Amino acid sequence: MVNKPIKWLFVEIDIDSYEHFSFDLWMTIIRSNPQFKPKRTVLLKEYFDIDKNVEEIDRVIRHYDNLFNIISEKTGNHIEREEVFFLIIASLGKDIQGISVDDLRGFFMRSDKLFIENIPRIIWKDIDQLLKKIKEKEKTASILSNTAFIYGDSLRKVLRQLELEQYFSFMIFSDEIGMSKPNIKIFEYLYKKTQELRPLHRSQIIHIGDNKIADQNGALSYGMNAKLVKF
């Protein structure tokens, strides 16, 4: 008798066909809390005394967020958030000569605190059941995520609060290794991390994410399996 893939919400995943499950994070497992970004916009305005309304500031933040996601996908390199925010602040009419990297880091400390206080929402509603089943079958799972304005240390705290951290053998964030999906080197790094757990062939690994370029094409180009999900 052939086992059919289990359908988790709208996603069919045949757990028995793979030994390691790599998951994207943003828009695959979680999405931003709708209260966070407006609060971050107000914080940016007040912290740097920006003489623009919050709607204009929000528009500029979204523009550069989207732009740098595209650049990261095309180059495969991680772009430091300090660089992005210097451009954002300059675009909003502030003279960045008077703003130091330490000033920005002070802003990020407060922004990260807001992020944790306004914790992201889980969008893959039965992800805990899927991860539990993977663990029960003595298989392994990990996170492989590009990061832009929110870095890996804060995302680990979020997964801990959401009681999901326990299911992942390791987590890879682009800000911590200087590479972004779909760079083949980041999938090579993922493969090396799985080998530290136990010997596996690339065909025994599946990467699951929402982005066709970064997740699906990136994994397939390295010889892994891929599953595209949309919620």
Rank of each mutant, 00 (worst) to 15 (best):
N183F: 02
R62W: 10
F23C: 11
K230G: 06
N118A: 10
S154P: 01
I143A: 08
E12P: 02
N53I: 00
I186V: 15
E73C: 13
I208H: 07
H20V: 15
N183K: 08
G223H: 09
K113G: 08
S32P: 10
N217D: 15
I123D: 13
F108H: 00
N118S: 06
T147N: 13
I134A: 05
M27F: 09
I88C: 03
S142G: 01
E46D: 14
H207C: 06
L155W: 03
K139I: 05
I99R: 09
K181V: 11
M109H: 07
K39A: 13
M109R: 14
D210Q: 06
D51E: 14
D95N: 15
I186F: 07
R81S: 11
R105F: 01
G106C: 14
E188L: 09
K133R: 05
S203I: 13
N33C: 11
L144C: 04
K74M: 12
N146I: 04
K125A: 12
F23I: 10
S174A: 12
Y189I: 03
V101K: 13
E138S: 15
L155I: 11
A148L: 14
M27R: 15
D95A: 05
Q161P: 04
R81L: 07
D58Q: 10
G178Y: 05
K139V: 11
I213F: 05
I71K: 14
I88R: 11
G93P: 04
G93V: 05
S169E: 15
L144F: 02
I70Q: 15
S145K: 05
I208M: 01
R40Y: 04
I96R: 08
K132L: 14
L190I: 00
S100G: 13
I172L: 10
I150K: 01
N211E: 03
I205T: 11
F68W: 12
A226Q: 08
S142V: 03
L197K: 10
